[in-house]
């Protein structure tokens, strides 16, 4: 009579208890998220309130808000924070401007059969190492390097190492993260909306301005979350092509061994900036298209 195996009974019991089923399914990933991800963020925030022994540089766990006070009062930190925000904003704007026409081509203009191949082509730079790409740019931008040589006939020369170079390299590095959401957004754009716009008398540019851009704006905002936060968190590009410029990333990096609590306090700056940015983006409805 009892054809019910234990497995079947368990499956039946789970079927009747959807909450238990969901709990079991999510237990492992949630634990990972809480302990490894949010946990480390919490420790970062906590350690920002500690201090160091001035002689040994060992962390001393006594509560103080000195680190944050230093951040707010010392002009150098304010300058660096603002400069970092400026770089992240510039990278985001450049990526949006470059990505829009590219995504328009890959999602709307190119033959449908060729589109997957183009997406793969856009992704290939992500398969190469960050360091290789950054050092490649170091060579390109060098004094008397390929860029100088190429711009020479036009009477221009390479910007050399510095903030401009950092913006250039970061914009190059994060470009695929901007193109992909826009490409996805444009692919979902119903083709007959473009037909309808032309039918109602709009020339191509008018259609782009009145229909394509407003509808793809959430995708641009989604892409900007990547470019903005990745730029704000970056500390390598500035060391490789930044010359003497300082950004918040390499300031943190420089403090990690000497003054971990101060580095942690510095580390909260981009986190807060990105949280504020996410809140602003959320209001535009862009997170729904992520």
């Amino acid at each position: 009579m009892t054809t019910d195996s234990a497995g079947r009974r368990l499956a039946g019991a789970l079927h009747r208890r959807p909450r238990l089923r969901l709990g079991l399914l999510l237990a492992a990933p949630l634990t990972w998220l809480l302990v490894a991800y949010l946990g480390s963020l919490a420790v970062l925030f906590l350690s920002a309130f500690w201090t160091t022994d001035p002689f040994t540089s060992d962390v001393v766990r006594s509560w103080t808000t000195d680190n944050f006070r230093t951040l707010l009062s010392a002009p150098v930190y304010r300058t660096v924070a603002l400069r970092s925000l400026g770089v992240a904003a510039a990278v985001t704007v450049i990526d949006a401007v470059v990505a829009l026409p590219i995504a328009c081509y890959t999602a709307l203009v190119a033959k449908p059969s060729r589109r997957p191949l183009l997406v793969v082509a856009l992704l290939t730079p992500l398969w190469a190492s960050y360091l290789v790409k950054a050092y490649a740019w170091r060579i390109i931008l060098a004094n008397g390097g390929p860029l100088d040589w190429a711009l020479g006939p036009l009477g221009l020369h390479s910007p050399g190492y510095g903030l401009t170079a950092v913006i250039l390299v970061l914009a190059y590095l994060w470009l695929p993260y901007m193109i992909l959401p826009i490409h996805a957004g444009l692919e979902q754009l119903p083709a007959n909306l473009l037909d309808a716009s032309a039918d109602l008398g709009a020339r191509t540019w008018r259609t782009v301005r009145s229909v394509v851009l407003p509808m793809v704006l959430p995708s641009v905002a989604a892409g900007s979350v990547f470019t903005f936060s990745l730029s704000l968190g970056d500390y390598l590009a500035v060391q490789i092509v930044g010359g003497r410029s300082q950004l918040i990333g390499n300031l943190i990096y420089a403090n990690v061994t000497l003054n971990l609590p101060l580095a942690a306090a510095l580390g909260t700056v981009p986190v807060v900036a990105i949280l504020l940015y996410l809140l602003a983006v959320r209001r535009s409805g862009a997170l729904r298209s992520l």
């Binding site: 119903p190 007959n192 909306l193 309808a196 716009s197 032309a198 039918d199 109602l200 020339r203």
Partner: peptide
């Protein structure tokens, strides 16, 4: 081009701008 013709279209799925 469509915008040079004195015709207008009602599309099957309406194609209203959302």
């Amino acid at each position: 081009a469509p915008f040079e013709r004195d015709v207008n279209t009602v599309f099957q799925d309406y194609a209203l701008f959302p």
